[in-house]
Write a protein that binds this DNA or RNA. Structure first.
Length: 520
RNA sequence: GCCGCAUUCGUCUAGAGGCCCAGGACACCGCCCUCUCAAGGCGGAGAUCACCGGUUCGAAUCCGGUAUGCGGUACCA
């Protein structure tokens, strides 16, 4: 029996695809990308995107994770057309319920049908028997498979075992032959059923269904036309196809996505990489960047453009252009994309995104004993031109401007002295600069007014302007890297600029006096 | 072990027989710009297209094999 490819999509039929996470952990970037590709595919072709929760692994499923998965998808802008009830909102769509634990009777009915048609059978083999089989196969260098001990039991034999009190699993008859299908990403795939490990268990002895069964029952009942999922399912696809056929259902088209990898090229894992979408969000990545980056991890538009909004992606996305090889998750590149998107955000979006980080930073400092003023939206709005292009992450805002909102900054005296200068020169320069700034500022404290006289001073004294500016920068920010100096002075304000200059001079004088005192 | 999938610069990728002694981006290096940091501009280094055979006038592109990697092979999902 050689099967012809049957994974054909009927033209004209509405496209339906789905993302089916199991809430056993926070949403992983790999899952997010799978969801994204499904979403984009549906949007591009005017189909429906369905969300289904695979929560049959009761032991590992947690409500907290379910919320994380849902929140993360929502944050990314990946909205579903049909899905379960969440946060008080009712379920949407005609094929519900969309939670597997609420679909148990559907699986039971499907299993009963397969049993009635003898496409499946009860298997009474004990775990010990199975383990013994496996061991034997191993020594004989055979691939592990179910030997079929219970495949041909008579009605009497089954009744007998039941009477002994043995509990049965339900096994699906896999049969002989080659299963073939055309994967939208991988092309033609053919797998012999002998590689499937024998008749597979679809219902546990406690009556609960197994993944390979529920996924097919659900995809069939929900009329899924395209199954877009991770590559780890490729080898199991023949089982699914056989099950679809046995159930008399249309076999969907499959598309197996390449894996996202750790830097060592193994499947990306929590153990070796940061995987949770929520963790990237917390760090200060914007949703546009994560979507953009993930879309390009395994897919390319074929042009040299690389910044795309979700809407643009939905217009351009093609499954046929998805790569077949795994892709290493490259954080530096993600940060670059993030910087690109931060530049593109509106002022309000940027403020909304960044302000909480700044306030958190200042609150921390306040808790540490510092006196701070918590900035509001307008404070940050005024600073946007100074910081926007300096932010790889939303959280970068803190290092850039926090010194503007604390009453006193800590200045390391050594940092005040530029490389080409000594402490005396620095002290003198700072004093001269203080005088000039006080004079100019008394009339008008503007960036344009401040710069020329200070440059003239340097010219006069034979100083490098950069050295003077660096000394001032450290004096008022405590850092050697900061936004442009004169705008920063203005943002700080006339009074506070003079205060910090004075404090720096004092610190320098003390330091200098101290070291000289001991030397002479 | 068996089955499957994959293999183009460090990384993400373009490339569907001649346009490729392989293009772009990130990262890296240098120069320019410049008050620091960024950003931006320009330039550099970086891939014998995993390897070996074959097909062809011609192969990164087609075919076969090998190697390596990854995935699957559960009463997990």
């Amino acid at each position: 029996m050689t099967e012809l490819p049957s994974a054909r999509h009927t033209p004209g039929m509405a496209i339906r695809c789905r993302f089916a996470p199991s809430p056993t952990g926070p949403l992983h970037v790999g899952g997010a990308r799978t969801a994204l590709y499904n979403f984009l595919f549906a949007r591009k072709l005017g189909g429906s995107f369905i969300l289904r929760l695979e929560d049959t692994d009761v032991a590992r499923s947690e409500l907290e994770y379910e919320r994380d998965v849902l929140d993360s998808l929502h944050w990314l802008g990946i909205e579903w057309d049909e899905g379960p009830e969440v946060a008080g909102l009712p379920a949407r769509g005609p094929y519900g319920p969309y939670r597997q634990m609420q679909r148990l009777d559907l699986y039971r009915a499907a299993a009963d049908r397969l049993l009635a048609e003898d496409k499946a059978y009860p298997c009474f083999c004990s775990p010990e028997e199975l383990a013994a089989d496996r061991k034997e196969q191993e020594t004989a260098h055979q691939p592990p498979h179910y030997v079929g001990r219970c495949a041909a039991l008579s009605v009497e034999e089954r009744a007998g075992r039941q009477a002994e009190g043995r509990r049965a699993v339900i096994r699906f008859r896999v049969g002989q032959g080659v299963v073939e299908f055309d994967d939208l990403v991988r092309g033609h795939v053919a797998i012999d059923t002998t590689a499937l490990g024998g008749d597979l268990v679809i219902v546990r002895s406690d009556g609960t269904p197994l993944y390979h069964f529920t996924v097919v029952v659900d995809d069939a009942q929900m009329a899924i036309t395209h199954v877009i999922r991770g590559e780890e399912h490729l080898s199991n696809t023949p089982k699914h196809i056989l099950l679809f056929r046995a159930l008399g259902a249309e076999v969907p088209v499959f598309a197996h996505l390449p894996l996202i990898l750790n830097p060592d090229r193994t499947k990306m894992s929590k153990r070796k990489s940061q995987t949770a979408v929520a963790a990237y969000r917390a760090e200060g990545f914007v949703k546009e960047a994560l979507v953009n980056y993930l879309a390009l991890l395994g897919w390319s538009p074929g042009t040299e453009e690389e910044i795309f909004s979700l809407d643009e992606l939905a217009q351009r996305f093609e499954l046929e252009r998805v790569h077949s090889a795994g892709a290493v998750f490259d954080r530096p590149r993600l940060e670059w994309v993030n910087g690109q998107w931060i530049r593109r955000l509106s002022d309000d979006e940027l403020i909304e995104g960044a302000l909480p980080y700044l306030r958190d930073r200042l609150s921390e400092q306040e808790a540490g004993g510092a006196q701070v003023r918590l900035p509001g939206e307008d404070d940050l709005r005024a600073l946007l031109p100074l910081v926007r292009e300096r932010m790889p992450l939303l959280s970068s805002i803190s290092d850039l401007v926090d010194f503007l909102f604390v009453t006193e900054i800590a200045v390391e005296p050594r940092l005040l002295v530029p490389k080409r200068w000594d402490a005396s020169t620095t002290l003198e320069a700072l004093s001269e600069a203080r005088r000039l700034i006080a004079d100019v500022g008394a009339v008008s404290f503007e960036a344009d007014e401040l710069e020329p006289p200070l440059r003239a001073l340097c010219e006069d004294r034979g100083w490098k302007a950069g050295d003077l500016f660096m000394a001032i920068r450290v004096a008022i920010t405590g850092r050697t890297a900061a936004p442009p100096l004169f705008d920063t002075l203005v943002a700080l304000g006339f009074e506070r600029t003079l205060q910090r200059l004075d404090a720096a001079r004092e610190a320098l004088a003390n330091e200098k006096g101290g070291s000289h005192g001991t030397a002479t």
